[in-house]
Amino acid sequence: MKAFALDHATSAQGAIHALQHGGTVIAGGTNLVDLMKLQIAAPDRVISIRRTELGEMALDGEGLRIGALVTNADCAADMRVREHWPLLAKAILAGASPQLRNRATTGGNLCQRTRCGYFYDTTQACNKRDPGAGCAARSGFNRIHAVLGTSDSCIATYPGDMAVAMLALDAVVLTEGPSGPREIPIAAFHRMPGDDPSRDNVLEAGELITAVRLPAPTGGIQLYRKVRDRASYAFALVSVAVDVTMDQGRIARCALAFGSLGTVPWRDPAVEQVLIGEEPSAALFAKAANVLLKDAKGLGANDFKIPLAARALAATLNEATQAGKA
């Protein structure tokens, strides 16, 4: 860890002001401190936002506003979330460990960096860590890597769970920065790597996430299915967030998002269009999976994610639509 100066902002505005002079925001630190120890992140200046007002959750006419500093644990424990947006609670509870969720924050988790082993190893080439260095993962051990949204520069996944649920729930990321406040639909928040994998999301320099807003509850059946190599405390191989409403035996409305499948949390409206208005069946789920995965590309070790995603989709839709019929 390189030496750095640590400042404590006492308000969001103060933090944004401090960021004008460069620096990196720290909230829970569960990802940043990890990266700083390995010098994958090496900021000269770190600005803590722990003393700011961003730790509040509030319900208003537009939905639920979750402050950037709200911990994952508090968010998942919140009875409003559990009753009306259970998908979000389920996704958060599927992630990390209780200790990490007690420290990790809403804003920080949105900015969580990839778990690609080549990104995490400074002896290896990585365009995300070191633009222009090349991508050692493409022809390396890439079992956990993305099959959608990849580029020649990068095949790393966004590894988190919370954002996948938020994507299915049409959340909006609220930010403030030098050019004022912004409302960024979460579908537009994470960036696909293209030829610049170093930027994971669309935040501009000096811009700070202040909150995430969940729109009004859908009332649907909400499930989060995380498939991983051990039963807990592991990143997803593939995860599926489902929010489905049934009407007279047919799928009236649905939202589907996928984690660890693409380079970003993945949602494809065309998949939902295949499903809406139809009676659930194995054949229908397979059709939806085909649409989802038509451009999916494996690199050998991660080929299995393609059939796995189709299977996880079928299992989760099957469960949700059965529950929705009941």
């Binding site: 720290i26 630190g29 569960t30 990890d34 460990s97 200790q99 420290r103």
Partner: peptide, 12 residues
């Protein structure tokens, strides 16, 4: 609340 003390800076 339980946390991983390894990932938290003391000054925070």
């Amino acid at each position: 609340r339980r946390i991983n003390s390894c990932l938290s800076l003391a000054q925070l």
